[in-house]
Nucleic acid binder design. Structure first.
Lengths: 342, 342
DNA sequence: TTGAAAGCGCTAACAG
DNA sequence: CTGTTAGCGCTTTCAA
């Protein structure tokens, strides 16, 4: 074992203060009343010795880790970054550390994460990543570690799930476009590798059929391969421009895809919103700062992160006063990327 | 203490395998040779019992935590998100967890972070946040916890520091603009609350003076209050438009500020790059996806994160084979936000 | 090669 | 109110 600086322990404090070890512990944890005099002596001793409790020891005794694991596909995606902020804030308020697990969409990191969980390196997990693999969910379940799903639909009734109402979001976007007079509407999507994306796409198709709006194959473009979201949007946008006829508006599966498409249009001399209107999904910070600023369906990411952790904290206390599925109402944020038709 | 599922411990494995506790440990850690037969029995027992070592106990014994602390001002800032990815990847490769500490620029979280460190909840720290407060550096120093600075200039010679060569970056940007024929150049900056930003601003002024280029007060706009970077850029951009005469080009202190300024210009009918050229700093992912795409000075954020952790891992092993200050060479990335003059 | 035993620093009965 | 004591699950001498 490596040489280390001498560590001040509770034992030292007890000796210095002339009291028993347990008295110090009781004082520190408030688990038993301590007389004012001993209290003073303990405080003085702690001060003098610069004592700091050792969390590892405390955690071993209490059979916990004081940490929560956050599992996201990509921390550089602003959606997850905002989510992480919400998670981080509430966790800290509750005295927990958050261990970041960002996969960069690499499959084998899922296994690493399960190791982390099974080795009890976290007390609970916030999962914002849909395991395609059913086996991993089972493994997580088997670990006995409490978990919450954020932006992931329920997979069992053990874990609460917090997701935005994706269908509603798409419907709001489409209703808005229709109200503006649009009838020829396209849909650009990243690979629908999670249920949220599947639902958005399905909601789009359903709405269009229900309203009897034309639905062309060349207007519904769904990327197959997993890669940078903006690049996907750019490629799909360029692709759309090859259509025999352009739709007058498009809905994108996410803001990043919308930004990519926007760039594709502008760089091809297509004006937004004059020639084509765009609605995004998520409302990342940058949506309001591109030109034209992006009209989009807002997901309250920060709040979703907060809510997720709040549920998790309840789970950790053995309570369970929340629904299995919490559907968050999305909000349409009107900006400058859409224009009326006729 | 709360009721918990029964935990399989090494003791159980030992009993199941019919060997001593320490033999199992030796096998698991390779600290002593184990005969093939006992090896088999142990493996079988582990398998049968679904045993997973408990890290808390191991850590207590080894006097470590197996975690690294990452301290950044704002995880939703793409610069730090990319950095975090680099940090996260290397840490995990080395078997460490990374604890995310994102402050959202709140001052009191610095104290929280110091608590984390002093309570030995991390084995080392990656600091990407300049404490204004000298006291906090001293406190970190006093904790004895190894640290590295990333995007923060050295504060002592205990901790290695990895920063981009900010002066060179600004000079590259300006040389580029000058080569394009620009002589009237402005500078928009977020609050220079860290040395990197001070250096950029200073480098700008020095370069301009050295080249004998005109330097107007109304072209050098530096925000005073800490807030959203893009909003700052937007405000400053609008502000610049009030100048008696517009510069033909501007350099921004960061891409986010540049994006805000770009938006301000475009929304005021000023064309980029026709009317004014813009150079950013950082090269965040989105720089290439706005329209026009942003010419910028690239900081290799991911690599800086990696390098920082690599140094930290060395520190943790007691080695120290690196310079106190590692200056990373910035790269000018030409895109579409600049145009030649005359 | 294997095992017994002494803790790592702290909490929590339990007794006084 | 204060002290004694038995571990939490694991690593690591030290002996056998």
């Amino acid at each position: 074992m490596k040489e280390r600086l001498y560590r001040v322990t509770m034992k030292d404090v007890a000796r210095e203060a002339g009291v028993a070890l347990s008295t110090v512990s009781h004082f520190l944890n408030g688990t038993a009343p301590v007389s004012p005099k001993t209290r003073q002596r303990i405080i003085a001793a702690i001060e003098r010795l610069h004592y700091r409790p050792d969390f590892t020891a405390r955690n071993l005794k209490k059979r916990r880790t004081n940490a929560l694991g956050l599992f996201v596909p990509d921390i550089t995606n602003p959606f997850y970054a905002e989510l992480a902020r919400g998670v981080s804030d509430v966790s800290r308020e509750a005295g927990y550390s958050v261990i970041l697990y960002a996969t960069s969409y690499e499959r084998d990191l899922e296994e690493d994460f399960m190791e982390l969980v099974e080795q009890h390196q976290v007390d609970g997990a916030i999962i914002s990543y849909s395991f395609i693999n059913e086996r991993l969910w089972k493994r997580l379940e088997g670990s006995g570690v409490p978990a919450v799903l954020v932006d992931v639909y329920p997979v069992n009734d053990l874990w609460p799930s917090v997701v935005v109402d994706n269908e509603r979001g798409i419907e709001k976007a489409l209703s808005y476009l229709v109200a503006l007079g649009h009838t020829e509407i396209g849909y650009l999507s990243e690979p629908p590798y999670v249920l949220s994306l599947v639902k958005r796409q399905r909601a789009f198709l359903n709405f269009m059929r229900r309203k009897g709006l034309s639905l062309r194959d060349e207007w519904v473009l769904v990327e197959k391969t997993q890669r940078n979201r903006v690049e996907i949007g750019f490629t799909l946008g360029k692709e759309l421009l090859k259509a025999s006829k352009l739709p007058t508006a498009i809905v994108a599966s996410s803001d990043l895809v919308a930004l990519g498409a926007l760039k594709a249009f502008l760089s091809s001399g297509i004006h937004v919103p004059e020639d084509i209107s765009i609605v995004g999904f998520d409302d990342i910070l940058l949506a309001s700062y591109v030109h034209p600023s992006l009209t989009t369906v807002r997901q309250p990411k920060y709040e979703m992160g907060r809510t997720g952790v709040e549920y998790l904290l309840q789970l950790l206390q053995g309570k369970k006063e929340y629904p299995t599925l919490t559907l968050i109402e999305p909000v349409l944020v009107e900006r400058d990327s859409c224009r009326g038709r006729g």
